[in-house]
Design a protein around this nucleic acid. Structure first.
Lengths: 225, 225
DNA sequence: CCAAAAGTGTTTGCCTTACACCCATGC
DNA sequence: GCATGGGTGTAAGGCAAACACTTTTGG
């Protein structure tokens, strides 16, 4: 092993996961009570330490997979949090990621096993360390991402009705939307396609089911080069 | 010193600064040749290691100040870069920040002393490690920030003409803009105010000088709570 | 007097918003 | 037959884009 930069300080680096789900028409967050000192028993994001030979993105995925059993989850970095005293125990630099999961894919027994709980985004308990700040930034990113493209669909099952989708958008942006305008907007978006299937569970008449259009190719208009 | 988490790996953490300037009507970047191995002589962002008792934000400011002599510089975090092999020397996790400086405030002798050079954003040389990726992301953030508010003014002197400002916006967004529409937009923005001063250097007729309106209060419409 | 940059309004199309009623079905 | 959620169109206002000429003055 080389030691080019050996005279400098070294730090514990962790990942904290902001796990968004959509349940009961509301945007929810999966958090748990800390199992270790300091702060044992405080509500906290789920996190894990970066391993010596592991990309930080990989740490995030590993942490999430170990927790939920899900792989191929949509995750995006929120940023690095590096105040000296952010963790009351020892200095830890943390990189926050947010994840979007479809709660139906998530085994509730795993949730219980890890002592995790879904909380409504606007009824969060006090949180450990700077986790509240991380969540605030993650929500901003989530909104931008959902406004810009199909990311929001990750929070729904593969097949969904337009009413479900509208409830999701309303939950993400925290405001009610007009049904007709919403449907016009969705029909204009090329990332959602109608199927021939009908969902009869939500209403007597039945509602058309839609899904993500796999032919959709994202273009990133503002990333140059 | 406590050791709550002592069994985990520890990492070198550095900061890399993406320093934007506006010179000769173009968006430019301040970079230098690496002075150390590995990669000695390669073009590189300027960076520094995080110290044991230092917030990462502070590392970024310290690094920038030591380089430019400027304090109170506008800086924003871009994100953490944590691939295992991103640095060919030893594993280093780096947090990228971008900074906006007014080149007129910057002592050119300091630039020479550190062997730094301004490069046009669309004529960058090959860069060390993942620095090109950092720059791409920083540019995306910069555009968002400038589109949303007064951040772009940090790249100009305190007093500026509308033509200068338009050239700046054109450089940031990489496209030409219509003069009349641009001026309408600026006159509608409440963060810029006209002064009674006239700049005679750029034209025979003279152009009105504008400045940042210090009464402007930023509101962040989409950051909840 | 002319070159060179400063300054100034109107029209058009598009996209967003507001708004109310009929449809299909299970019970 | 009625309660329940599903589904549809149009008009108005606001915003962004296109577009060309007059003004001032140093040389």
């Amino acid at each position: 092993m080389s030691a080019y930069y050996s005279e400098h300080a070294r730090f514990l680096v962790s990942v904290d996961c902001i796990i968004f789900g959509f349940k009961d028409g509301r945007l929810q967050l999966l958090i748990g009570k800390r199992q270790m000192d300091p702060g044992r028993g405080a509500w906290s994001l789920y996190g894990g330490f970066v391993k010596a030979d592991e990309d930080i993105d990989t740490t995030a995925k590993r942490t999430l997979t170990s927790l939920t059993g899900l792989s191929k989850v949509f995750m995006r970095q929120v940023g690095a949090f590096g105040a000296v005293d952010r963790d009351p125990g020892e200095r830890v630099i943390s990189v926050a990621y947010y994840a979007l999961i479809n709660v139906a894919d998530y085994d509730d027994r795993l949730r219980e096993k890890y002592g995790l709980q879904w909380f409504d985004m606007d009824a969060l308990p006090p949180l450990y360390s700077d986790h509240k700040e991380m969540i605030g930034m993650a929500l901003t990113r989530l909104r931008r991402q959902v406004a810009a493209g199909p990311a929001g669909l990750r929070l729904l099952p593969d097949l969904f009705t337009l009413t479900q989708l509208q409830r999701l958008y309303e939950a993400v942006f925290g405001k009610e939307m007009d049904k007709r305008n919403f449907r016009k907007r969705i029909q204009a978006a090329d990332f959602i396609e109608k199927t021939a299937l009908i969902d009869k569970s939500g209403s007597k008449r039945g509602a058309a089911l839609y899904r993500f259009n796999k032919n959709f190719v994202q273009d990133y208009p503002d990333i140059k080069q």
